[in-house]
Nucleic acid binder design. Structure first.
Lengths: 227, 227
DNA sequence: CGTGCTGTTGAGGACGATCAATGACGGTGG
DNA sequence: CCACCGTCATTGATCGTCCTCAACAGCACG
């Protein structure tokens, strides 16, 4: 998504770079004090279960709010973390300042609410996907990430493990799904995830981007944060 | 959940009863004009797919807001409906009046936001459940509904089809899971879903109610809506 | 040149889907 | 009262998807 709305609040934020892959960016403790925005890199909202399994709920791209879930629900979301999947930089705003801003500009609160609802929308989509065959699940996730990365991008900066932990397949079976997609001429033969036939990929995934709803979100935010 | 917060806004609402099982209570069109609260009965947020399959995302009990998802995201949630699962009555508030109320009382908006986040929380839980074996999935859903119905309730007003459409199992396999739960002495032998060993059920489901977070939600709302 | 992470392959088995048929129950109308 | 119907619950059998285990290959890192 565009980063337009970040310009407006950049002066309120403390910027922190140099976050490394694997680091936990946002957890309950942090979220209770700061509000966080991803500026550069790729992150994910995740839970690590006792047995070592990891559930990835969603991916965060530059411009996304991090740890929204903990903002109003610290207790019920203790187990959720935001983990850096590449080297990242973030911006933070003191919780107090955020509260004040929301007081003065109710539309800011609404923008955050809207962002939470897009998250919920992604979760609903994942639930639907959970009933699909493996190849379609993987294909749909790739479509989603292509969409979020923007039209020029063909390489998705994820590995197969991360995909597996997101769509709920074993790594082995995820790998076999990737091979299917290569055999179908959708992905390149390279080791990374490179899409060579976007159209075909969307067909396989039955992808409809509306659930990601970029429509009204940015305009509202941009409109009111500066006023 | 308690209905305390409903008292505060009851005078703003138009009450409409006599809604029958199977009726669509809230869809995009309705949500754009009215804001809806479930007063009596049981409903569910659902999507019907082309192939006839139904995905139930969550259940709504008295006191829940209906069609929240459509409030800010009409276009991206066109396919989602709220369907009555029993005879229901609802309260509606004109969209305009709701907007005004949110203007005057920012905390109202926040309460709605909070409610959306609990929904998201339920969806996340469903994603985790999707990786569990069938019996555990069913058990967890039953725990969730027991929790929402209140401590005195042992009979869950769902049928096996609705459970299947929620946890993402075939009806046949859902039925076999119910038989397992009966054999384990968790459910009674009756045709309805009656829990006789709650403790055991929670153990099987590894149930932790925190994701439903009733903690701060009601207090905040009650505190400010009247002021 | 080892070490670690990711990707790949094969084999076997479990879980759950599907199909098809039957049973139980409540309601309706004759 | 009985016959009929629709909905939901139940059963058996077969099949396919996906998981698990185990091993190895490719590549980047020091």
């Amino acid at each position: 998504m565009s980063n337009g709305h970040l310009e407006a609040i950049r002066n309120l934020m403390k910027v922190r770079g140099g976050i490394c892959r694997g680091e936990i960016i946002a957890d309950t403790v942090r979220s209770s004090k700061h509000f966080t925005v991803l500026l550069e890199g790729l992150a994910c909202m995740t839970t690590r279960h006792e047995d070592g399994a990891r559930q990835i709920y969603a991916f965060h791209h530059p411009g996304d709010f991090l740890g929204l879930h903990g903002l109003l629900h610290p207790k019920s979301t203790e187990h959720i973390e935001v983990e850096a999947l590449s080297n990242c930089s973030i911006g933070t705003i003191d919780r107090d300042i955020l509260e004040q801003t929301m007081q003065r500009h109710p539309v800011v609160g609404r923008a955050l609410w809207r962002a939470s609802m897009i998250e919920a929308s992604i979760f609903r989509q994942r639930l639907v996907m959970a009933r699909w065959p493996a190849v379609q699940r993987v294909a749909h996730l790739l479509c989603e990430q292509l969409f979020r990365l923007g039209p020029d991008n063909r390489v998705i900066p994820l590995n197969q493990i991360e995909v597996a932990d997101t769509v709920g397949l074993s790594i082995v079976h995820t790998n076999r799904s990737f091979q299917d997609l290569r055999r179908l001429g959708v992905l390149s033969e390279k080791r990374c995830i490179e899409v060579v036939d976007t159209k075909r990929l969307k067909e396989i995934a039955v992808f409809d981007s509306r659930y990601l709803d970029p429509s009204e979100f940015l305009s509202r935010w941009d409109l009111h944060i500066e006023g």
